[in-house]
Write a protein that binds this DNA or RNA. Structure first.
Lengths: 206, 206
DNA sequence: AAAATCATAGCGAACGTTCGCTTTTTTATT
DNA sequence: AATAAAAAAGCGAACGTTCGCTATGATTTT
């Protein structure tokens, strides 16, 4: 029922999205042409418009399908830990694992910001809005042992801190990165944990 | 000697860079055409090539001239404070003031990442490399009262944490931002200060 | 047979750049 | 200070190419 064999057109559509995604990540939106997309997808110019009405519709399909919240929300929901510290640490580890698996998770948001001025972000949030209450319930239950930090601020700083690890990495060329010590993510996260945990000695290492 | 009146061509060149910068920030690099640039600069198509050899040369001039380190390095150098906590707090305030004044400071880096894959970043670091030793000397002198955090990691997490405030802001549409509580930057920074300060009660408020 | 899918060829518009040529500004010489 | 030569700056039109997109008709999938 769910896994009936894909109709022919759906396979092509998926190939178009795969090709477009890869090219957008490499070259950005305006730097990628429809001809590059169809060539990579193995079809011709005319064919693509049976599946998408325009180039921007392709971007929207890619953007809504592969935005980072698809990965972030489940991670925050599935993370476990007896104490708040353990929970945050587990969530951090899972999240960084996911971001390592898909380095493009954040890049797609940057493209949206740079080339569309974030015009599609409101629509993105409409789609993930239904999941937000459950998420905030999970976090509330876990946040007891943390410093008295408002939950929205906590969530925002948590996500932002993760983003920043990858952004600073992207902004540093290899030469500088080695000069900067090639910080491990665990060390990076540890600073944040000290920031949000109530007990000063709550960090497990050192 | 230094302030002899600008030659005519230099004024035009400055107008071109101003126009290009504004347009790149609004539309990205590939989303901006040479015709838009020359129109905004008040010249014609042929004229611009007396000053820049190509569109990419315009981008490089903009990028190297207005990248965020121009603002960040002086801030970290000029920040003051008797204790490490005071110093970091002062630096944080100055930096956020600078970032508020020029919201595009980070955006220009995103354009470079999205549309050039960071191809010009190595050249950027070559230009700012001479200033790095002085900076790290300043930070070393101030870092005594902090937790035992390697200096490169400290610098990276500090910058990253600032970036994250603006990135999460850009990624949240107004509706969600109000739902998230419209966090003040002071609260945001406070979390980070707790993370890097040795004494748990070192924060001055609360 | 009907519907969906695809290839071919081509549209007009916009792209970055270059071309001669004119005008303005700077420099050098009186 | 006036003048002539040189250099710099500006113009508008056109270049060849590529852009996103769309007719139309053939072919394949349901």
């Amino acid at each position: 029922m769910v896994d009936e064999p894909l109709r022919k057109g759906e396979q092509t559509q998926a190939r178009i999205l795969d090709a477009a995604f890869a090219l957008f990540m490499e070259q950005g939106y305006h730097g990628t042409s429809m001809r590059q997309i169809v060539e990579r997808a193995g079809i011709t110019m005319g064919g693509v418009y049976n599946h998408f009405a325009s180039k921007e519709e392709i971007w929207k399909a890619v953007f809504f399908e592969r935005h980072p919240y698809h990965a972030i929300l489940p991670v925050l929901r599935e993370a476990e830990g007896a104490t708040a510290a353990d929970y945050v640490r587990d969530a951090a580890r899972r999240l960084v694992g996911e971001l390592n698996k898909q380095q493009d998770l954040l890049h797609i948001m940057f493209i949206e910001l740079v080339e569309f001025n974030g015009a599609h972000i409101p629509q993105l949030y409409e789609r993930i809005a239904p999941q937000l209450p459950q998420l905030s319930a999970v976090l509330s239950a876990k946040a007891g042992a943390l410093r008295a930090i408002p939950l929205p601020l906590l969530a925002r700083s948590f996500l932002g801190y993760f983003f920043s690890f990858y952004i600073t990495e992207a902004l540093m060329p290899p030469a500088v990165r080695s000069l900067m010590g090639d910080a491990s993510f665990d060390d990076f996260v540890d600073i944040y944990l000290h920031g949000i945990l109530a007990a000063p000695g709550a960090g497990s290492e050192e």
